[in-house]
Design a protein around this nucleic acid. Structure first.
Lengths: 154, 154
DNA sequence: AAAATAAATTTGATTATCAAAGTGAAATAT
DNA sequence: ATATTTCACTTTGATAATCAAATTTATTTT
């Protein structure tokens, strides 16, 4: 994938040039859905991304303004990755990516609470998702998670 | 991109493994937004896809059940590509891809009618978009286009 | 002081992508 | 009827991305 080009000004092409690869959206998913924040946590993803590709994708997403990197205050080896405003704005997109995969895949594997959440109004779920992340939680985890607010996974 | 793998059952990963590349969503865009149907029309896209990559992506999307290929009845050289039900179901995803690109890109280039449409209720626009394609039109073109139904581009 | 942990980087092989040229069948023009 | 054009690809050879595995450097824990 010859990245960094500017093949056209089409907004769809813009998004695809930033996120159209195998790993970028999975990293964003790990942040938005599971609250992952460190290199080591991303390395442990279900899909087994390698460290060289991970480092490359994180640098790419940082340069494109999707996420930011700050040193941990408690452990100076660690870097903390967090989403920018543009990264948070990916919630509706990620919701539709997950939704299409859920209805199209012959055997989608996700927590039951995801499939339960899909039965609710999508605008509501997407708003709760943003509020969860802004409060330091994520879709599935934390006291302000979508799962907690909707009373799923009880 | 080592395609055809099954790295996990995650619905997001499922979608990304099918559509996570530079060209697949642009082909779907050309079909849904502009009503393109033939190899030659896709070749003329703004982003200048080459014939070898186009042939590969079309075969990929056909094998994944996003589109179908039938010989033209009027010209036996031509193949007509059309979207399947799964392909039509990409409308909400493509809408969000375009929406994120529109608010994130520093200089998005699209017809004014797209930006006008974004001001309307997204569920309405997505429903009109599907109806347009089902009626043989597309987002921008044809008597049943979204643009026509919303009275944009007058 | 030694061992473990964290965030990457390096290496060398495999795979995808690219632009440019070429192919064969069917339609159109002469 | 013949020549030319159109159309949907395929082939080719170079460039670029991706991969798993091993290594490096700095920090933290034992």
């Amino acid at each position: 994938m010859k990245r960094e080009e500017n093949k056209s000004g089409c907004p769809i092409n813009y998004t695809v040039e930033i996120l159209g690869d195998t790993w970028s959206l999975l990293i964003v998913r790990d942040m938005l859905a599971l609250g992952k924040k460190t290199f080591g946590e991303f390395l442990e993803s279900e899909e087994r991304i390698g460290p060289s590709v991970l480092a490359d994708r994180l640098a790419h997403l940082e340069r494109k303004g999707i996420l930011a990197k700050t040193p941990s205050e408690t452990d100076r080896r660690k870097m903390i990755y967090s989403l920018t405003e543009s990264g948070l704005n990916l919630i509706p997109l990620l919701y539709e990516v997950s939704s299409w995969g859920s209805i199209t895949s012959p055997n989608p594997a996700a927590p039951d609470s995801w499939f339960e959440a899909m039965k609710h109004d999508k605008v509501l779920v997407q708003r709760l998702w943003r509020e969860a992340v802004e409060a330091g939680s994520s879709f599935f985890l934390g006291p302000d998670s979508v799962v907690a607010k909707l009373g799923l996974d009880v």
